[in-house]
Design a protein around this nucleic acid. Structure first.
Length: 872
RNA sequence: GGGCGAUUAGCUCAGUCGGUAGAGCGGCUGCUUUACACGCAGCAUGUCGGCGGUUCGAGUCCGUCAUCGCCCA
């Protein structure tokens, strides 16, 4: 048997176990086991980066649930994997190649560029997988997936082709958000609005007939080159006369009409709005309504086009702004400039200011699927935790727009659409056709674009199981049991998975969705590289231990509130692991080899109490985990270990540990075993390490040798035993703390043993423990009055305890203390008396509440009487 | 502009069914008590953001205001 170190060495423990677990295949699903399946799929991390604290949280919660369900006897499966993350990855790798070799992706060509991306993917996937192992994630590596695996690609092609044939996917020119930095279209969700200090420029547009002018206000003067009208509100008296007249658009010589439209806010700016249908979503809509022409003056490269005129063509849009303003100024057409704070749309990924442009893209209609998704939450097929996200869900799905799914990227699932170079016929097929089905030509060209990453992510809960093939895994593990993810991807991912699941599998993809919190720094600020307050999970695991990190995250994961992670919190968790370690060490040191889990334990009063506490704690823990209240589970177990097991039970059992029978000691061993099994899902390393040191040679034959493979201890026979007097322990604890308080109040040297007295016969049961914990030389049981000038006395529930101080006592201080106690008790009793004297309360409140209060008052009165008696 | 959330001990946060407020950390006092100083014993700490309402009773339910944060437009 290995001697346990004085302190838990987490660095050793957390490197020892994972490979052994993995080798023993205990994390692998057992489809043939006959157990009930339980499954969860990982929110696949992007291959662009390492795992951050947010991942550590999500995966810790995943692992707690998975280990818990596995222990409960489910065939638990956690499917791991990574996501290709189209834009993010392509941008990163492009930048890297540019820096290293000075080449663009076009220099390399599509094939070579993709080769590099796959290399990058392999490298990063490996890193991420190792980080998951470091965290202890009990995933089934035999089922790991990548969003661009061939069978997942097959699912994507299948869905795309089917949706196209159903008319759910269409291609067409529409105004989209274009990211000039990554050279691709984006969906509405990938647009971020940032507040910027800008200007509002007031521009003069003269009437064509020279009879006057209108002044328009704009934040983007460069777009004026593409204006095709100026709009005013139809009821705006100031401008009614202008409607229908023509304006001479400065710098272009073009004539544009003044039009009336309800969308104009007369109170904004001058009340005249320039319309640039080619470069603004609102203007685009207005242009369609009013049948205005659309002139594209900014290209996909964010430079001015030839349409902008020879003077501006080729200029960057922001350079052009300067020139346009200078030219207008020179012509006296710049009326005024105001400071103005406004929202600018930027790419969520690259931060580049987006350009709304009309472009030919692929879109997916989602209105029908959105209705189905709404219904699935409304009727409870999917439950959200916290529930309030259902409101946000409702709002978004009720206002959903068609989804732009094509991206002008090379990294991603290539769109399975083929154009015949012979006749121009477009074919969308799951498998690439050889010939044009219209003209028979063999010259076909696949659409160069790829799909939005979220298109494949949306299929993840079933594509990982081999859908569309009716695989064994699909039948067994789909729909999955739970989804755990951040609320920030409610729309991006959760909504799209639900819609896709309902559309393609006729099932909701998961029963429960738990939205985890955001991990912030110790002051509640968001972690960010620029603030320098990022706490790295790997460093944290090195400094405090993986278990400490996991415990901290679990303990703070109250649903719906963000987590403020601090060093002091991590220290507390590390201390907790060490506490457990030392309790186990102490037990182990006292056990002879004959004490094993096969020995039928013998229970005394302390054991009955401990068993009852454990049963209660485990019932509450089980329920807490099942309802995703991880923080509650962590807290219950913390107090069970520290307060009940260590501070009370082990202290009482010290005598047993030294002199007890094999059967008595077996009880202690069983308690420790139960604790290890209960704590394992949260802190797998320290518990497995203890399990090896203490249990490995004491297991019942046939029990798994790994703690990770053992069962949830709720049904443990020890916990079902009834017996003992449940009132003893509370009395013991109160008496003990009363004595300890008397010692402290009287400044007794902690090591000094003194004679004690009590009227509480119940203490007899725990005599040895009481004497040792209260540092008593002796304990005498007396009836009635314990008071004596040499003794300090304290009133406890149901009796008195006293300490012989023999000359160490200060009578005046003693009396003052009792008077203070009297005052305190009166203060507590008074409101109780008043409430009970109130007829309203007694008549209207439920009987239980009244009875409870009467009981409380009776208790206070009892103490009061005793204190008064002591005061004489 | 619309919606959501938060406001509780010095700090970070729990608080389920409305029954009279808790944890961790920190603070103070004292301890090399033979599992653990990553520990032990003891002590202190609250106008539960403000105001109003419902109720016998409100941290909890309703209304309103304030401050902060997030999402959407």
């Amino acid at each position: 048997m290995r001697e346990m170190d004085k302190a838990f060495d987490f660095k050793t423990a957390q490197t020892r176990w994972y490979a052994q677990w993995e080798d023993s295949k205990i994390f692998e699903a057992q489809p043939e086991s006959g157990k009930k399946p339980w499954s969860i799929v990982i929110p696949p991390p992007n291959i662009t980066g390492n795992l951050h604290m947010g991942h550590a949280l999500v995966f810790t919660l995943h692992d707690i649930l998975t280990r818990f369900k596995r222990a409960q006897g489910f065939d638990a499966l956690w499917v791991p994997g990574v996501d290709h993350a189209g834009i993010a990855t392509q941008v990163v790798v492009e930048r890297q190649i540019k820096e290293a070799e000075g080449k663009t992706r076009h220099d390399l060509g599509r094939e070579e560029f993709l080769k590099r991306l796959w290399q990058w993917k392999d490298q990063n996937q490996g890193d991420i997988e190792n980080q998951l192992r470091r965290l202890g994630a009990s995933v089934d590596w035999t089922r790991k997936r990548f969003t661009m695996d061939p069978d997942l690609n097959k699912a994507v092609r299948k869905v795309f082709a089917a949706a196209y044939k159903q008319g759910r996917i269409y291609k067409g020119p529409r105004m989209i958000q274009w990211d000039p930095a990554s050279q691709t279209a984006l969906s509405d969700l990938e647009v971020k609005y940032v507040e910027k200090q800008g200007k509002l420029w007031h521009l003069r547009y003269p009437l064509a007939d020279g009879s006057g002018q209108l002044v328009v206000a704009t934040t983007r003067p460069e777009t004026m080159l593409g204006d095709t009208a100026v709009a005013v509100h139809p009821e705006d008296e100031r401008y009614k006369a202008f409607v229908g007249k023509m304006l001479k658009l400065p710098l272009t010589g073009r004539e544009i009409p003044v039009v009336a439209d309800e969308m104009v806010d007369p109170k904004f700016g001058t009340g005249c709005v320039k319309l640039t249908p080619a470069h603004d979503p609102n203007d685009h809509a207005a242009g369609k309504r009013l049948h205005l022409p659309s002139i594209t003056v900014i290209g996909f490269d964010a430079k001015m086009t030839a349409e902008a005129g020879a003077a501006y063509a080729g200029l960057d849009r922001f350079e052009c702004r300067k020139k346009v303003l200078a030219d207008l100024e020179a012509q006296g057409l710049l009326e005024k400039i105001e400071d103005y704070t406004h929202q600018v749309s930027v790419s969520d990924r690259t931060g580049c200011v987006l350009e709304p442009l009309v472009s030919e893209q692929w879109f997916m209609k989602v209105d029908e699927a959105a209705k189905a998704a709404l219904a699935s939450v409304r009727d409870g097929r999917i439950r959200f935790t916290p529930e309030r996200w259902a409101t946000v869900w409702e709002h978004w799905l009720n206002n959903i727009q068609d989804w732009c799914i094509s991206r002008q990227l090379w990294w991603g699932h290539r769109i399975p659409a083929y154009t015949c170079l012979g006749c121009g016929h477009l074919m969308v097929e799951e498998e690439a056709p050889d010939t044009c089905d219209k003209c028979g030509s063999e010259k076909l060209e696949q659409d160069p674009d790829t799909l939005d990453t979220w298109f494949s992510s949306a299929l993840w809960p079933f594509s990982v199981f081999g859908w569309p093939d009716e695989t064994r895994d699909l039948k067994r593990y789909y729909p999955t049991s739970v989804l755990i993810t951040g609320y920030d991807i409610l729309f991006f991912w959760v909504a799209r998975m639900v819609m896709s699941g309902l559309l393609w599998t006729d099932e909701v993809p998961f029963r429960d969705v738990y939205f985890n919190s955001l991990v912030r720094d110790e002051h509640g600020s968001k972690m960010s590289k620029s603030k320098g307050n990022v706490i790295d999970p790997l460093e944290t695991m090195e400094e405090f231990g993986t278990d400490a990190l996991r415990y901290s995250l679990a303990a703070m994961a109250a649903p719906g509130t963000d987590i403020s992670l601090s060093k002091s919190r991590l220290e507390a968790s590390r201390n907790f692991c060490n506490k457990l370690w030392n309790a186990a060490r102490f037990v182990q040191m006292s056990l002879t080899p004959d004490v094993t889990l096969a020995v039928e334990p013998e229970l005394g009063e302390a054991e009955y109490w401990m068993a009852a506490r454990m049963k209660d704690a485990l019932e509450r823990t089980t329920q807490a985990i099942e309802e995703f209240r991880f923080h509650e589970a962590a807290e219950i177990l913390y107090h069970l270990v520290w307060d009940d097991f260590c501070a009370t039970y082990i202290e009482l059992a010290k005598v047993t540990l030294q002199q007890g029978t094999t059967e008595q000691k077996a009880a202690i061993l069983h308690f420790l075993d139960i604790l290890l099994r209960a704590l394992h899902p949260v802190v797998p390393f320290v518990t497995e390490e203890i399990h090896e040191a203490v249990m490995s040679e004491r297991l019942v034959p046939g029990e798994p040798s790994f703690l990770a493979a053992r069962s949830w201890p709720l049904d443990h026979p020890m916990l079902q035993k009834k017996g003992g007097n449940p009132e003893l322990m509370p009395k013991f604890q109160e008496a003990l703390s009363a004595i300890l308080r008397l010692r402290a109040e009287n400044g007794i040297d902690p090591g000094k043993r003194l004679p004690g007295f009590t009227t509480l016969k119940e203490l007899e049961v725990f005599l040895d423990g009481f004497k040792s914990m209260a540092k008593l030389e002796s304990l005498s049981f007396l009836d009635g009055d314990l008071a004596s000038p040499s003794r300090a006395v304290s009133v406890v529930g149901g009796g008195l305890v006293a300490l012989e101080l023999a000359g160490l006592k200060d009578p005046a201080a003693d009396r003052a203390k009792l008077e203070k106690e009297l005052e305190k008790l009166e203060k507590e009793a008074t409101p109780l008396r008043e409430r009970l004297a109130d007829e309203n309360f007694v008549n209207k409140a439920p009987q239980v509440a009244v009875d409870k209060m009467r009981g409380q008052l009776r208790e206070k009165e009892g103490r009061l009487a005793k204190v008064r008696a002591l005061l004489g």
